[in-house]
Design a protein around this nucleic acid. Sequence first.
DNA 1: CCGACAGGTAACATTTTGGTTACCCATGGA
DNA 2: TCCATGGGTAACCAAAATGTTACCTGTCGG
Lengths: 113, 113
Amino acid sequence: MDVDPHSLVFGALSSATRRRILDVLKAQPGCSVNDVASHFEMSRIAVMKHLKVLEGAGLVLSRKEGRRRVLHFNPVPIQEIYDRWTTEFSKHWAARMTRVKYVVEAQGDSDER
Amino acid sequence: MDVDPHSLVFGALSSATRRRILDVLKAQPGCSVNDVASHFEMSRIAVMKHLKVLEGAGLVLSRKEGRRRVLHFNPVPIQEIYDRWTTEFSKHWAARMTRVKYVVEAQGDSDER
DNA sequence: CCGACAGGTAACATTTTGGTTACCCATGGA
DNA sequence: TCCATGGGTAACCAAAATGTTACCTGTCGG
């Protein structure tokens, strides 16, 4: 995994567990680390590490409140990737569909992997 | 990294190298493995492994043509994630911006990471 | 004040990732 | 035919990711 923001966000989202954590934070904004951990089988420490990855990608915002850490989902990084990739891929989408269809058909008899 | 399609696509995109490979395939559709490898410092084998990851995520389509392997970028998996996440996050975006702003301001004095 | 509770660190084990070199196979051109 | 070219596999290695347990720190409630 690299250091640029894109890689951090994609890397964070590449784990089903972390995406589930985001779901929890969306459903219960402002909840604590233990609140999140209670939804998973793994140890609280493992959840904390996932939270650190998510926070490093900017997908989670947190602050200490007394002895609790208050967690919030932050959609902004996703929105940013969204905006960039829309403009970048929009020219490929409709235009490419025919080509992709051709490729898929043409490889019908080839070796798959 | 898990096995579900989402994780595969996000995982594939989490590497700047692999995103650059996609750029090459977008610019030179139908090019060969060596064509791609010529754009990078690393060995051809390393590039092939990246291509395998991309193909596993459905982002690259390939077929054998003589002794060459012909490569194409496939935007469909990104489009699918796009569609799903649009509907899933759209309710959070505009609505959340005020909350996020609040959170950011409120944590102004807290520890950052 | 003191114990329970929430969180954080450290050290460790295991698995996955990302790269290498060495070697093999197939094909296409002279 | 024969060899250069493109591709593929195997074995190996270092580093990073992902989980664990053990232990420490700070804060809230009684």
